[in-house]
Simulated assay, not measured.
Amino acid sequence: MTFEDALFELEPDAPADQGFDNLPGTPLEELVAPDWAEALRPVEPQLRDALAYVATQARNGIQVLPAAGNLLRAFRQPLADVKVLILGQDPYPTPGHAIGLAFSVSRETRPIPRSLANIYRELHDDLGLPPRVHGDLGAWSEQGVLLLNRVLSVAAGRAGSHRGKGWEAITTAAITAVVNRTDSAGKPKPLVAILWGKDAESVEPLLNGAPSIVSVHPSPLSASRGFFGSKPFSRTNELLVAQGAAPVDWELPVL
Protein backbone atom coordinates (compact mmCIF):
# COMPACT_ATOMS: atom_id res chain seq x y z
CA MET A 1 0.00 0.00 0.00
CA THR A 2 1.38 3.41 -0.96
CA PHE A 3 1.33 6.37 1.39
CA GLU A 4 -1.40 7.87 -0.79
CA ASP A 5 -3.55 4.76 -0.39
CA ALA A 6 -3.08 4.80 3.36
CA LEU A 7 -3.78 8.52 3.58
CA PHE A 8 -7.07 8.37 1.73
CA GLU A 9 -8.33 5.38 3.73
CA LEU A 10 -8.49 7.44 6.91
CA GLU A 11 -12.00 7.62 8.31
CA PRO A 12 -13.77 11.01 8.42
CA ASP A 13 -13.79 10.94 12.23
CA ALA A 14 -10.17 9.80 12.62
CA PRO A 15 -8.32 11.08 15.73
CA ALA A 16 -7.17 14.65 15.35
CA ASP A 17 -3.45 13.83 15.13
CA GLN A 18 -3.76 10.91 12.70
CA GLY A 19 -1.91 11.64 9.49
CA PHE A 20 -1.55 15.42 9.78
CA ASP A 21 2.17 15.29 10.61
CA ASN A 22 2.86 13.56 7.29
CA LEU A 23 1.10 16.12 5.10
CA PRO A 24 3.60 19.02 4.98
CA GLY A 25 6.37 16.84 3.55
CA THR A 26 4.31 14.67 1.21
CA PRO A 27 4.87 15.26 -2.54
CA LEU A 28 2.09 17.30 -4.06
CA GLU A 29 1.37 14.57 -6.61
CA GLU A 30 0.44 12.22 -3.76
CA LEU A 31 -1.99 14.69 -2.24
CA VAL A 32 -3.99 15.85 -5.26
CA ALA A 33 -4.75 14.81 -8.85
CA PRO A 34 -1.80 15.28 -11.24
CA ASP A 35 -3.23 18.28 -13.09
CA TRP A 36 -4.16 19.91 -9.80
CA ALA A 37 -0.58 19.40 -8.62
CA GLU A 38 0.64 21.30 -11.66
CA ALA A 39 -1.93 24.07 -11.21
CA LEU A 40 -1.12 24.53 -7.52
CA ARG A 41 2.66 24.47 -7.98
CA PRO A 42 2.94 28.31 -7.92
CA VAL A 43 1.36 28.38 -4.44
CA GLU A 44 3.04 25.23 -3.11
CA PRO A 45 5.00 27.19 -0.45
CA GLN A 46 1.75 28.66 0.89
CA LEU A 47 0.14 25.22 0.78
CA ARG A 48 3.05 23.76 2.76
CA ASP A 49 2.67 26.53 5.33
CA ALA A 50 -1.06 25.86 5.68
CA LEU A 51 -0.46 22.13 6.06
CA ALA A 52 2.25 22.81 8.65
CA TYR A 53 -0.14 25.04 10.58
CA VAL A 54 -2.79 22.31 10.61
CA ALA A 55 -0.21 19.70 11.69
CA THR A 56 0.91 21.94 14.55
CA GLN A 57 -2.67 22.47 15.68
CA ALA A 58 -3.28 18.72 15.71
CA ARG A 59 0.01 18.06 17.50
CA ASN A 60 -1.07 20.53 20.19
CA GLY A 61 -4.19 18.49 20.86
CA ILE A 62 -6.66 20.57 18.85
CA GLN A 63 -9.01 18.46 16.78
CA VAL A 64 -8.77 19.57 13.17
CA LEU A 65 -11.53 18.90 10.66
CA PRO A 66 -11.83 17.26 8.22
CA ALA A 67 -9.60 14.25 8.81
CA ALA A 68 -6.15 14.32 7.19
CA GLY A 69 -7.23 12.03 4.38
CA ASN A 70 -10.02 14.38 3.37
CA LEU A 71 -8.27 17.72 3.82
CA LEU A 72 -7.54 18.15 0.10
CA ARG A 73 -10.34 15.92 -1.16
CA ALA A 74 -11.80 18.64 -3.40
CA PHE A 75 -8.66 18.34 -5.54
CA ARG A 76 -8.78 14.57 -6.00
CA GLN A 77 -11.00 14.71 -9.07
CA PRO A 78 -9.12 15.99 -12.16
CA LEU A 79 -9.02 19.72 -12.75
CA ALA A 80 -9.70 19.00 -16.42
CA ASP A 81 -13.13 17.57 -15.56
CA VAL A 82 -14.44 20.58 -13.61
CA LYS A 83 -17.44 22.30 -15.18
CA VAL A 84 -19.27 23.65 -12.12
CA LEU A 85 -17.80 25.48 -9.13
CA ILE A 86 -19.81 25.60 -5.89
CA LEU A 87 -18.02 27.69 -3.31
CA GLY A 88 -18.46 27.29 0.43
CA GLN A 89 -16.92 29.06 3.44
CA ASP A 90 -15.12 26.59 5.70
CA PRO A 91 -15.77 23.00 6.81
CA TYR A 92 -18.52 22.07 9.23
CA PRO A 93 -17.00 22.34 12.74
CA THR A 94 -18.92 19.37 14.16
CA PRO A 95 -16.72 16.23 14.46
CA GLY A 96 -17.72 13.55 11.96
CA HIS A 97 -19.45 15.95 9.58
CA ALA A 98 -16.80 17.48 7.31
CA ILE A 99 -15.53 15.26 4.49
CA GLY A 100 -13.52 17.76 2.43
CA LEU A 101 -16.29 18.77 0.02
CA ALA A 102 -18.18 22.03 0.55
CA PHE A 103 -21.69 21.58 2.01
CA SER A 104 -21.27 17.78 2.01
CA VAL A 105 -21.24 15.55 5.10
CA SER A 106 -20.53 11.90 5.80
CA ARG A 107 -23.28 9.45 4.91
CA GLU A 108 -23.71 8.57 8.57
CA THR A 109 -24.47 12.14 9.69
CA ARG A 110 -27.98 12.55 11.16
CA PRO A 111 -29.59 14.98 11.01
CA ILE A 112 -27.95 16.66 8.05
CA PRO A 113 -26.96 20.32 8.55
CA ARG A 114 -29.73 22.84 8.03
CA SER A 115 -27.95 24.58 5.16
CA LEU A 116 -27.76 21.28 3.31
CA ALA A 117 -31.40 20.53 4.11
CA ASN A 118 -32.25 23.87 2.47
CA ILE A 119 -30.16 22.94 -0.57
CA TYR A 120 -32.16 19.71 -0.83
CA ARG A 121 -35.42 21.65 -0.53
CA GLU A 122 -34.39 23.94 -3.39
CA LEU A 123 -33.21 20.93 -5.42
CA HIS A 124 -36.68 19.44 -5.04
CA ASP A 125 -38.47 22.69 -5.84
CA ASP A 126 -36.22 23.33 -8.83
CA LEU A 127 -35.97 19.88 -10.42
CA GLY A 128 -38.45 17.73 -8.50
CA LEU A 129 -35.67 15.52 -7.15
CA PRO A 130 -36.32 13.78 -3.82
CA PRO A 131 -34.25 14.87 -0.81
CA ARG A 132 -31.95 12.16 0.56
CA VAL A 133 -31.59 11.18 4.19
CA HIS A 134 -27.80 11.34 3.78
CA GLY A 135 -25.73 14.41 2.95
CA ASP A 136 -22.94 12.92 0.83
CA LEU A 137 -22.56 15.05 -2.33
CA GLY A 138 -19.70 12.97 -3.70
CA ALA A 139 -21.76 11.99 -6.76
CA TRP A 140 -21.77 15.64 -7.82
CA SER A 141 -18.00 15.82 -7.42
CA GLU A 142 -17.59 12.80 -9.69
CA GLN A 143 -19.45 14.67 -12.44
CA GLY A 144 -17.15 17.67 -12.41
CA VAL A 145 -18.78 19.76 -9.69
CA LEU A 146 -15.95 21.28 -7.64
CA LEU A 147 -17.31 21.60 -4.09
CA LEU A 148 -14.64 23.94 -2.79
CA ASN A 149 -14.52 25.62 0.60
CA ARG A 150 -12.70 28.95 0.66
CA VAL A 151 -10.88 27.70 3.78
CA LEU A 152 -10.07 24.00 3.89
CA SER A 153 -9.78 23.28 7.62
CA VAL A 154 -11.34 24.26 10.93
CA ALA A 155 -10.87 23.52 14.62
CA ALA A 156 -13.66 21.36 16.01
CA GLY A 157 -16.42 23.50 17.49
CA ARG A 158 -14.92 26.79 16.26
CA ALA A 159 -16.39 27.89 12.94
CA GLY A 160 -14.08 30.19 10.99
CA SER A 161 -11.10 29.45 13.23
CA HIS A 162 -8.69 28.77 10.35
CA ARG A 163 -9.51 31.82 8.28
CA GLY A 164 -6.46 33.93 7.52
CA LYS A 165 -4.10 30.97 8.00
CA GLY A 166 -3.09 30.71 4.34
CA TRP A 167 -5.87 28.69 2.74
CA GLU A 168 -7.30 31.67 0.88
CA ALA A 169 -4.20 31.92 -1.33
CA ILE A 170 -4.52 28.25 -2.27
CA THR A 171 -8.21 28.43 -3.10
CA THR A 172 -7.74 31.67 -5.03
CA ALA A 173 -5.14 29.86 -7.14
CA ALA A 174 -7.52 26.93 -7.57
CA ILE A 175 -10.38 29.12 -8.77
CA THR A 176 -8.04 30.95 -11.15
CA ALA A 177 -6.79 27.63 -12.53
CA VAL A 178 -10.36 26.47 -13.19
CA VAL A 179 -11.25 29.70 -14.95
CA ASN A 180 -8.11 29.80 -17.11
CA ARG A 181 -8.47 26.34 -18.66
CA THR A 182 -8.81 26.31 -22.43
CA ASP A 183 -9.65 23.69 -25.04
CA SER A 184 -7.48 22.69 -28.01
CA ALA A 185 -8.71 25.74 -29.93
CA GLY A 186 -7.76 28.09 -27.11
CA LYS A 187 -11.34 28.77 -26.07
CA PRO A 188 -12.31 28.81 -22.37
CA LYS A 189 -13.64 25.44 -21.21
CA PRO A 190 -17.29 25.32 -20.09
CA LEU A 191 -17.78 26.54 -16.53
CA VAL A 192 -20.60 27.76 -14.31
CA ALA A 193 -19.97 29.17 -10.84
CA ILE A 194 -22.62 28.93 -8.12
CA LEU A 195 -21.92 31.56 -5.48
CA TRP A 196 -23.99 31.37 -2.31
CA GLY A 197 -23.44 34.17 0.20
CA LYS A 198 -21.14 37.19 0.49
CA ASP A 199 -17.96 35.14 0.97
CA ALA A 200 -18.57 33.26 -2.25
CA GLU A 201 -19.72 36.34 -4.13
CA SER A 202 -16.42 38.05 -3.29
CA VAL A 203 -14.56 35.80 -5.75
CA GLU A 204 -16.67 36.91 -8.72
CA PRO A 205 -13.83 39.14 -10.03
CA LEU A 206 -11.69 36.00 -10.37
CA LEU A 207 -14.16 34.42 -12.80
CA ASN A 208 -13.05 36.49 -15.79
CA GLY A 209 -16.54 36.64 -17.22
CA ALA A 210 -17.49 33.00 -16.68
CA PRO A 211 -21.24 32.74 -16.03
CA SER A 212 -22.23 32.72 -12.39
CA ILE A 213 -25.41 32.19 -10.38
CA VAL A 214 -25.40 34.36 -7.28
CA SER A 215 -27.76 34.30 -4.31
CA VAL A 216 -27.77 34.53 -0.55
CA HIS A 217 -26.41 31.62 1.44
CA PRO A 218 -28.68 28.57 2.06
CA SER A 219 -28.26 29.05 5.79
CA PRO A 220 -31.53 29.18 7.76
CA LEU A 221 -30.64 32.78 8.60
CA SER A 222 -30.78 33.88 4.96
CA ALA A 223 -32.32 31.21 2.71
CA SER A 224 -35.75 32.83 2.67
CA ARG A 225 -34.22 36.10 1.41
CA GLY A 226 -33.39 34.86 -2.08
CA PHE A 227 -31.96 31.36 -1.99
CA PHE A 228 -35.33 29.64 -2.17
CA GLY A 229 -36.68 30.03 -5.67
CA SER A 230 -33.30 30.88 -7.22
CA LYS A 231 -33.30 27.62 -9.26
CA PRO A 232 -29.51 27.23 -9.31
CA PHE A 233 -29.54 23.65 -10.55
CA SER A 234 -31.72 24.05 -13.63
CA ARG A 235 -30.07 27.37 -14.48
CA THR A 236 -26.63 25.79 -14.21
CA ASN A 237 -27.60 23.03 -16.61
CA GLU A 238 -29.01 25.55 -19.08
CA LEU A 239 -25.74 27.50 -18.97
CA LEU A 240 -23.68 24.34 -19.41
CA VAL A 241 -25.69 23.22 -22.43
CA ALA A 242 -25.37 26.70 -23.94
CA GLN A 243 -21.58 26.26 -23.69
CA GLY A 244 -21.69 22.85 -25.34
CA ALA A 245 -21.23 20.81 -22.15
CA ALA A 246 -23.34 17.97 -20.79
CA PRO A 247 -25.71 18.90 -17.96
CA VAL A 248 -25.14 17.63 -14.43
CA ASP A 249 -27.34 14.83 -13.12
CA TRP A 250 -28.15 16.41 -9.77
CA GLU A 251 -30.02 13.38 -8.41
CA LEU A 252 -28.05 11.81 -5.57
CA PRO A 253 -27.92 8.05 -4.99
CA VAL A 254 -29.86 6.48 -2.17
CA LEU A 255 -27.94 4.78 0.60
Rank of each mutant, 00 (worst) to 15 (best):
R110A: 10
E142Y: 00
L148P: 04
S161F: 10
L28W: 04
D35C: 01
F75T: 04
G100N: 03
S219H: 07
A16F: 08
K231L: 11
L65I: 11
S104V: 02
P232R: 05
G186H: 05
T26G: 08
P247C: 14
N149H: 09
A58K: 04
S184F: 08
P131W: 10
S215A: 15
V241W: 08
L71H: 04
R150F: 08
A33R: 03
A16L: 09
F228Q: 04
D90V: 04
V64S: 04
S202Y: 00
P66D: 05
A193K: 08
P27H: 01
A246D: 15
D249V: 13
L206F: 11
P24E: 09
S141L: 03
I194P: 02
A242C: 05
N118V: 00
E168Q: 12
K189N: 06
Q77K: 13
T56G: 15
M1K: 09
S104P: 02
P24S: 10
G88E: 08
T56Q: 12
Q46H: 12
A174I: 05
G69F: 09
A6P: 00
V64I: 14
L7S: 08
L240R: 08
R76Q: 14
P190A: 12
A74M: 10
R158L: 13
A58G: 08
F20H: 15
L129R: 09
R76C: 07
K165G: 03
S230H: 15
S115L: 03
A16P: 05
A37T: 10
N60V: 00
A210V: 13
L152P: 01
D125C: 03
G100C: 04
D199L: 14
R235G: 01
T94I: 14
A139G: 09
T172H: 13
W140P: 07
Q57S: 14
R150W: 06
L28R: 04
A117G: 07
A245I: 03
Q243L: 07
E122D: 07
A55E: 01
V151M: 04
R48P: 04
S104W: 02
P15W: 06
G244F: 13
P130A: 14
D81P: 00
L7M: 13
G166P: 05
A173K: 13
Q243A: 09
V254L: 14
A159G: 11
D126Y: 07
A50S: 14
L72P: 03
G226H: 13
A37E: 09
V133H: 12
D126S: 06
R76P: 04
N60F: 10
L137Y: 08
P253Q: 13
A139E: 13
A139V: 07
D5F: 10
P45E: 06
R121C: 00
L148T: 05
A102C: 11
G229I: 08
E142Q: 14
L10E: 11
A173T: 10
I170E: 07
A173M: 12
P188H: 10
L137T: 08
D5I: 10
A210R: 15
E38P: 02
L23N: 07
A68P: 05
L87R: 13
T56S: 09
